Amino acid sequence: MEDMDDAGHHRVVVGLSGSLGSLTALHRAAAEARRTGAVLVAVLAWEPPGGEFAYRRSPCPPLPDGGQDRARRRLLDAVESAFGRLPEDLPLRALTVRGPAGWALTQVANRPDDLLVVGAGRRGRLLSPSVARHCLAHAVCPVLAVPRSPLHGVLEDMHRRSTWRLPLHSAAPLR
């Protein structure tokens, strides 16, 4: 899985999903790459709808190709969401990898001198099965688990409060 263009260069590998936590991890990974002069490798893992097991039971060749295309678009959207546009001051490689996220990240960050950056998720969930936990257990390189920003909780609270709900007494009767 090693990208030949990066042979001999220090790499900072970061997992992306498009979530706020992964965008926070991307910003931290970019800062580490700039600080050390490393290549930033953004990775988005994807699986066919229903997962690999369902795909193997009844394969449909167009699905993986469509999944790969959607994954590429999601990856570029996530990078553009984080930076506004592709960063010009930072060597960036964007990879989509078919497979579970934890496995994909540890396969890409396969050199001892790589740095793997992942979002740690919600406080207290690091001990549950997660991408961060898988990476911490299986990576051959240092892993930086970036905690959620305190602003994530504020944004989630604002979203919950702004969700419009129709009061029960004014609901139209079903006919």
Rank of each mutant, 00 (worst) to 15 (best):
Leu76Val: 08
Pro62Met: 04
Arg74Pro: 00
Leu26Val: 03
Glu47Lys: 02
Glu52Cys: 00
Leu23Tyr: 00
Ala31Pro: 01
Ser58Val: 11
Ser19Phe: 05
Gly37Phe: 06
Leu44Lys: 05
Ala29Asn: 06
Leu76Thr: 09
Ala25Trp: 07
Ala30Thr: 02
Arg11Gln: 14
Leu40Asp: 10
Phe53Lys: 11
Leu76His: 12
Glu52Ile: 13
Ala33Val: 08
Ala71Pro: 06
Arg70His: 11
Gly15Gln: 05
Val39Gly: 07
Pro62Val: 12
Leu75Arg: 04
His10Cys: 10
Cys60Val: 14
Val43Trp: 05
Tyr55Trp: 14
Ala42Met: 03
Thr24Pro: 00
Gly66Met: 13
Gly66Gln: 15
Cys60Met: 13
Pro49Met: 00
Val43Met: 10
Gly37Gln: 04
Ser17Thr: 15
Ala45Met: 11
Leu63Val: 15
Gly51Arg: 11
Leu40Gln: 07
Ser17Leu: 06
Ala30Pro: 11
Val39Leu: 03
Ser19Thr: 15
Phe53Ser: 12
Ala45Cys: 07
Arg57Gly: 09
Leu63Ala: 13
Gly37His: 12
His9Arg: 15
Glu52Asn: 00
Ala54Met: 13
Asp69Lys: 14
Ala71Glu: 07
Trp46His: 06
Val39Tyr: 03
Gly67Ser: 15
Tyr55Cys: 02
Ser22Asp: 04
Gln68Asn: 09
Thr36Lys: 03
Arg11Trp: 01
Gly66Ala: 14
Leu26Phe: 03
Ala29Phe: 04
Tyr55Phe: 15
Leu76Pro: 00
Leu23His: 01
Ser22Cys: 07
Gly18Asp: 08
Val13Glu: 03
Ser19Met: 03
Ala29Val: 05
